[in-house]
Each structure stands twice: as structure tokens, then as C-alpha cells.
Design a protein around this nucleic acid. Structure first.
Lengths: 205, 205
DNA sequence: GTCTATAAAGTGATAGAC
DNA sequence: GTCTATCACTTTATAGAC
């Protein structure tokens, strides 16, 4: 099932280049010529292998979107882990992903806006709303005497604290607020800090 | 200085339409023909008034970006307000802005990535780093015995908690996690909740 | 499978009539 | 100022040779 490692096939080379450029620049701003050049192949081969720019994009899109929510499904529905552990796992998973691929959030959010049909098949409210994670959150809020607060607020808090720094990262670095190394260091710190903060808000431990 | 209200001038109509479409779709995905149609005028007039698509975009971009950080400068540098009050003011200002113009964050973040020169003139690290807000944050962290924690973390937290829900808003609504009215209600709630959460983390009051 | 050449369509911009 | 028609160029996609 696995391709040989030594050299990527032409098909793979194109897909890899497409992933890189689409993710960075978005659909409209990417030219098929850019992809051909980046992958070192001929423009005609793109259409030979993938029929059209749009088909190629959909492929990349699905893979990117998958990467963005993939393992999270399992993390939030693992009935073996405590609420504390889930928070730690989710934060660590996302930050690790985003350190490698910081352009992902903006790409996903952008293409969701212009392409909302496709995600309906990939994600639905049950993934999060009926997840073990939300159940645990609700229980904890009730225990705190905050049964009237929608647990979705805390999901937003975790995602906001975790993902937002990567979205504004280029700005933070560009204006010199943090140097690239300092930014990365701060993100590593946040793996530990965010769970502590969220636990504080939930009066856990 | 102010234009008559009754009917917008052709120039204003074009700018209004451009703002709307550029903000929603980004630069590359926007066609000058879309703008012309949206504003109900002729394509040639766009170039007559604004010379080129790019000039028109820069105008819109500057205004949008201005709206995004404008008053924040004053809020974070007001030496008359306490740390608590600043947090409340910043959160309320952003949420009010974003309820009216939810596409703004994604637009700004996108165009920053492809156009980073322009923002250097509009924003610099001193606005935030040397702000009264950061000074107050540092002082409070020191008081907490957390003088080693970079106050920028808390800036990220406020922005993440405040802005992120609007970025993932379309997704939240699309998958049915919240209905549009529920989402708006949740955002109103967050005006009160976020300051409370941040104060808790800072052991304020 | 891979290339060159070119068709076909799209898009920003302008000339020129009114 | 506003319009129609059209140019000039870019970009996606394909035909056809190798």
C-alpha cells in the first residue's frame, strides 16, 4: 500500500506541491503554473493526472480538513480519559499540528466560507455536541453551580487560546513583538499553560 | 465634510460594494465585474474613479485594517483606566465590531499574509508592547509571583477568546451546533464572561 | 507518460461615443 | 460622468507529436 520512499511519483509530486501552495495562498490566488513549477513537472501533466485545478483542490482540501479535525474526534470521544486529560490532549495535539503546519487554520476557515457544502459530510454537530468531552464539561459546570452556562463557551475558549496565536502569528512576528524563536518557545509554553488556565476556570484540581 | 445621506454618489457606491466583496472573498477571488454588478454601475467607472483594482483594494484594506485596530490603540493606552476596565473595554469593543462585521478578522489575517509591507506602517510593536495595558499586565503577573510569564500570553488569550468564535462562527452555525440567534446570544454573553475569566486567571478581584 | 503548442475562456483596463 | 465595445493579457485546459 505504501509508495517507495526514494523518489516520489509524478502524481505525488504534483499533489505535494499543490498542497503547499493552495494551503498558503488559497484557491483563487494559486495558478496551476505555480504548482507545475513548484513540483518541477510540466503544466499539462497536472490535467493529465487530476483532470482540473478544481478536482486537485478538492483532494487537497479534504486532506487538509481531515488533518484539522481527524484525531480530535477520537480524543473528544475517548471514554477512558478524564476531562483534565482530554483538555491536555486536545491542546497538545493542535499545537503540535500547528507548529508543523501553521497555515492550516486560515486555509480551512477560508475555504469553509466559500465551500460550505463539502464540510457537512466531513463533520456534523454530533461529533462535538454529543461528545464525551461536552458531557464531562456539562457535568463539571453543573457541579460548579453554572449549569446555565453553555459548555460550548469552553470549547471556544480552548480553541481560541490554542489556535488564535497561530493565526495572528505572522503579524506578531512581522511587527517584532516576538522573534520567530520566541514565538515558537511561547507556543511550547502554551501546551502546559492553556490546560492550567482552563482547569482554573472550571475549578478543576 | 459629510456627504448627503439620501443617495450615495457613484464613487461611494463602488467603494461600498468593493468593501463588501473584497472583505468576503479576498483580493484574488474578487472580480472587478462583481464589484461593478454589486454597486449597480458600469465596469468602466471603476477604473475611472479608482484607476485600478489594486488601488481600490488598498483603499478598502486600509479602512478595514484601521477599523480593526483603531480605537484599540486608545483603549490600551488610556492611563486613566484600571487593568480590569481595559479588559472589559477591549472585549466589548471587539465583540461589538465583529457582530456588525464578522468577516473582518479573516480578511485582515489573510491580507496580512500576502501583503505584509503595508501593515508595518499602520501598526508597530510599540502599540501593544509598550502600552499601558501590557505594563499593567506585567505588574499584576509580578504581584502574582508569575513575573517569568510573558504578558503576551494574556494578550493572546483575550484576543483568542474574543475573536476566534467569530472566525469559526460560520462553521458552528453550518453544522448546526448553534442556530444563528443562539450564536449571537452567546457572543453577547461573552462580553460579560470573557472579562470574568481573564480576571480569574489574573487573580483580580 | 511527458512534452510543445495552442485553443478557449476569463479578466483588468481603456478608447471613444454620448 | 457614464456607457458600449474591445483590446491586451493571463490562465485553465486540451490536442497531438514523441
Amino acid at each position: 500500500m505504501k509508495k517507495k520512499v526514494q523518489d516520489l511519483s509524478t502524481e505525488e509530486k504534483i499533489k505535494e506541491a499543490a498542497r503547499k501552495i493552495f494551503t498558503k495562498k488559497g484557491y483563487a490566488a494559486t495558478r496551476t503554473r505555480d504548482i507545475a513549477e513548484e513540483s518541477g513537472i510540466n503544466l499539462a501533466l497536472l490535467n493529465y493526472y487530476f483532470r482540473s485545478k478544481e478536482k486537485l483542490f478538492e483532494l487537497v482540501m479534504l486532506e487538509n480538513f481531515g488533518a484539522f479535525i481527524s484525531n480530535v474526534k477520537e480524543l473528544v470521544n475517548n471514554t477512558e480519559t478524564s476531562l483534565e486529560q482530554k483538555i491536555e490532549n486536545i491542546v497538545e495535539f493542535y499545537i503540535n499540528q500547528l507548529l508543523v503546519n501553521p497555515d492550516l487554520p486560515l486555509f480551512v476557515m477560508n475555504e469553509i466560507r466559500s465551500n460550505s457544502k463539502l464540510l457537512k459530510t466531513k463533520i456534523n454537530k454530533d461529533i462535538f455536541l454529543k461528545s464525551h468531552f461536552i458531557q464531562q464539561l456539562s457535568a463539571q459546570l453543573k457541579k460548579q453551580g453554572k449549569g446555565d452556562v453553555n459548555p460550548v463557551h469552553y470549547l471556544m475558549n480552548v480553541l481560541g487560546m490554542t489556535i488564535m496565536p497561530f493565526i495572528i502569528g505572522p503579524l506578531i512576528i512581522e511587527i517584532g513583538m516576538l522573534k520567530p524563536q520566541e514565538f515558537e518557545k511561547a507556543m511550547m509554553e502554551r501546551k502546559k499553560l492553556i490546560p492550567i488556565w482552563i482547569k482554573t476556570l472550571l475549578q478543576l484540581k
